[in-house]
C-alpha cells in the first residue's frame, strides 16, 4: 500500500523480521526434502547433519529399470497443461455466459450451486464410477480420460474465480462493443479476455498445480503408460517401508516445473493484479 512509503525504518525492519521468520518456517521442510534427496536412507534415518552427498537417489529415480519416472513426468506435463487450458476455456465461456448473457436466475443458481456441491465430494468416491464409465467407452488409461477427469475436478474452482472476474468487467464496455457491432466471439476476445487476464493466470496456476498433484483419481484411472508423477512418488511408499530418499529425489524433480512456472507467472500475476487495481 502507499502507506508503506511513509513507514519509519524501524517498522519496516520489524515487518521484514516477521516475514523472514515466516519464510524460514515455510522453507525448512523444503530444505529437508532437498537434503534428503542427497542422502542415503540410513543417514537420513539416523539424522546425520553432516553427510556425504550422493546422487544415487536421482540416478535410481531417473535411470533404474524399476522406475518410469521420465515417462511419468512427461505424462504429468501433458495432462496438467491440457486440462488447465481446457478448464480455462470452459470456465471463461461459462462465466461469460452466466454473468453477461441474461440467463434466468435459476440457471446461474444451479450451475454455481452444483459447483459448490460437486466441489464437496471427496474425489475418491467418484473415482470408482469414473473408472467403470471410462472403461466402458475405452477412455481408461488414456490421456483424454485423465484430462477430462482433471478438467472436471478443477472446473468448480475455475468457474468460481472466473465468475468473479467476469462479473467485475464493466458492463458499459460490453455494451459499447455491442453498439460497435461486435459479436460474442469478438467481445470475448477483445473485451473479456484482456480484462480477466489476472483471473486466468490465478485460476490457471491453481488448476495446473492441482492437476499436477492429484493422486487418487490418476491412480484409479491410469496404468503404467499414463501414470503421473504423484503415482510414481506414491510407489516409494512400499508395502513395508517408505523409501524416503528416493521419494525425496522424485519430489524435488517433480517440483521443478511448478516452481519454474511460479517464478515466471509470478511477475505476470503481479502485473495483472496491479493493472486491475488501477481500473
Amino acid at each position: 500500500m502507499s502507506a508503506a512509503y511513509s513507514a519509519p525504518l524501524r517498522s519496516t525492519l520489524f515487518r521484514h523480521g516477521l516475514l523472514v521468520i515466516a519464510a524460514a518456517l515455510v522453507l525448512f521442510p523444503f530444505l529437508w526434502i532437498v537434503a534428503a534427496a542427497f542422502k542415503t536412507q540410513i543417514s537420513l534415518l539416523t539424522g546425520q547433519l553432516l553427510f556425504q552427498p550422493t546422487l544415487a537417489n536421482f540416478v535410481n529415480v531417473l535411470f533404474s529399470s524399476t522406475s518410469d519416472y521420465v515417462r511419468n513426468f512427461s505424462n504429468s506435463l501433458v495432462i496438467a497443461s491440457a486440462s488447465t487450458v481446457l478448464v480455462l476455456v470452459v470456465a471463461t465461456l461459462a462465466a461469460y455466459s452466466l454473468q453477461c448473457m441474461q440467463w434466468p436466475s435459476w440457471v446461474l443458481h444451479s450451475m454455481l450451486g452444483w459447483s459448490v456441491i460437486f466441489h464437496m465430494v471427496p474425489p475418491i468416491t467418484l473415482a470408482g464410477a469414473w473408472y467403470s464409465m471410462f472403461r466402458t467407452i475405452g477412455l481408461d488409461n488414456t490421456y483424454t480420460g485423465l484430462i477430462l477427469a482433471h478438467t472436471t475436478l478443477n472446473l468448480p474452482m475455475a468457474l468460481w474465480m472466473m465468475g468473479v472476474f467476469v462479473r467485475d468487467v464493466p458492463k458499459e464496455l460490453i455494451e459499447a462493443a455491442k453498439i460497435d457491432g461486435a459479436g460474442t466471439p469478438r467481445i470475448l476476445r477483445h473485451v473479456i479476455v484482456p480484462l480477466v487476464r489476472p483471473g486466468l493466470a490465478a485460476a490457471g496456476i491453481l488448476s495446473f498445480i492441482f492437476s499436477w498433484n492429484e493422486f487418487a483419481v490418476v491412480l484409479t484411472l491410469s496404468q503404467r503408460q499414463t501414470a503421473t508423477v504423484p503415482v510414481a512418488i506414491g510407489k516409494y511408499a512400499q508395502e513395508n517401508t517408505i523409501a524416503y530418499t528416493e521419494m525425496a529425489a522424485a519430489s524435488v524433480l517433480s517440483m521443478m516445473p511448478a516452481v519454474l512456472l511460479l517464478l515466471i507467472a509470478q511477475r505476470f500475476i503481479v502485473r495483472g493484479l496491479t493493472t486491475g487495481a488501477v481500473k
Binding site: 470408482g128 491412480l219 484409479t220 496404468q223 503415482v231 506414491g234 511408499a237 512400499q238
Partner: peptide, 10 residues
C-alpha cells in the same frame, strides 16, 4: 503395472 501398496487391491 506397479502400484503403491495401498492402491493395488482397488
Amino acid at each position: 503395472d506397479v502400484n503403491p501398496f495401498a492402491g493395488s487391491l482397488e
